[in-house]
Design a protein around this nucleic acid. Structure first.
Length: 336
DNA sequence: AACCCGGGGTA
DNA sequence: TACCCAGGGTT
């Protein structure tokens, strides 16, 4: 196993300057970790500051209305994160503060194996190592693990955890974890790793075999089915948009949407779509184009019908600010 | 173990 | 296009 001290020395010189680096408030560290789940540093940066400006403390977040949290999370994706964040904030505020161990943090909604270890290591200096995609990649290369993911995950986790036996890593678990993140993000990258700059180059078995760019082995991704839908943009006399809340669970759960048809694998004809209109007797005009939106497991192809009424029908909420809607809905609005 | 759940940047 | 990203939850 390569020396932790070599990586920490590299980190001291080459670490990225990030908005959440140097924070000691567990609330701020937790928020950064949740925002960063499957989301790039570049995307999170400005949204992190904006979220904290609106909800500066876990108590402020706990006391907020869901609609305010949803509005603040809009566009970040994986909206279950926001629902779990809100629920966890209420639990933490209710018990008077954050649990201080990974095992106890793990009990909070939206905090899994990775996030519990990350918060425990960074905020509370517990000698645990959070294993994210970066750490998995570094471990797979160091040990030349050719078993495909996700089957290799338990082994990669054990390899990572082994570093906590090194006193240098154990002394600063949060720094060591973030050093691994930075190594994966800037040197040990998915493609074209910059091995010549790596503090662990001499210890890397994949590098010795020349297979570093092939690891870790990941399964081929399946094709995404296309789902079709038709949505209705209805404005009242003041220009406000009629929206409705999606069910709390599932796709875009708890977020605002334009009323419309369900999403299905075949296109909708006009006569099929019309029963799903939010109001009758409206002179609907179809907007040009299509809102195409790619998700992890499907692709959406949505059409837009535009109409105007004096007053929105019951069941629709007037929304003045479209910024609080998921990106796919904003793409639809842009068709008008 | 397999699947669901967003959005954006990059080669 | 395809892949990746400081993953978690459900079945």
């Amino acid at each position: 196993m390569p020396p932790a001290a070599d990586l920490l020395a590299w980190y001291a010189r080459q670490k990225r300057e990030l908005p959440w680096r140097g924070e000691t408030d567990p609330y701020r560290i937790w928020l950064s970790e949740v925002m960063l789940q499957q989301t790039t540093v570049a995307t999170v940066g400005p949204r992190y500051a904006r979220f904290l400006a609106r909800f500066p403390t876990v108590e402020a977040l706990a006391e907020a209305e869901w609609s305010a949290v949803a509005e603040e999370w809009a566009g970040l994706g994986y909206y279950a994160r926001a629902r779990n964040l809100h629920a966890a904030a209420k639990a933490v505020a209710g018990r008077g503060g954050f649990p201080r161990t990974a095992a106890a943090l793990r009990e909070l909604p939206g905090i899994g194996a990775y996030t519990s270890a990350a918060v425990a290591a960074i905020a509370f200096h517990e000698p645990v190592l959070p294993v994210d995609g970066n750490v998995e990649r570094v471990m797979a290369r160091l040990a030349a693990v050719e078993t495909p993911l996700p089957a290799a995950r338990p082994l990669l986790g054990r390899l990572a955890g082994g570093f906590m036996a090194d006193p240098a890593a154990r002394a600063v678990p949060g720094d060591f974890a973030q050093a691994l993140f930075d190594l994966g993000a800037t040197i040990c990258t998915p493609r074209n790793p910059a091995c010549a700059l790596c503090p662990w180059m001499a210890h890397c078995r994949a590098r010795k075999q020349g297979i570093q760019a092939e690891l870790p082995v990941k399964p081929a991704r399946k094709a995404r089915p296309v789902l079709h839908g038709v949505h209705f943009l209805l404005r009242d006399a003041s220009g406000a948009i009629g929206v409705r809340l999606r069910p709390a669970e599932g796709l875009f759960g708890g977020m605002w949407e334009l009323p419309g048809t369900p999403w299905r694998d075949t296109p909708w004809s006009a006569s099929e779509a019309m029963p799903h209109a939010p109001a009758q007797g409206v002179n609907w005009r179809e907007a040009d184009g299509l809102a195409s939106h790619a998700l992890t497991h499907r692709e959406l192809a949505l059409r837009l019908l535009v109409g105007r009424v004096a007053a929105l029908p019951p069941g629709l909420t007037a929304l003045g600010n479209e910024a609080g809607m998921p990106t796919v809905m904003r793409k639809l609005l842009a068709l008008e």
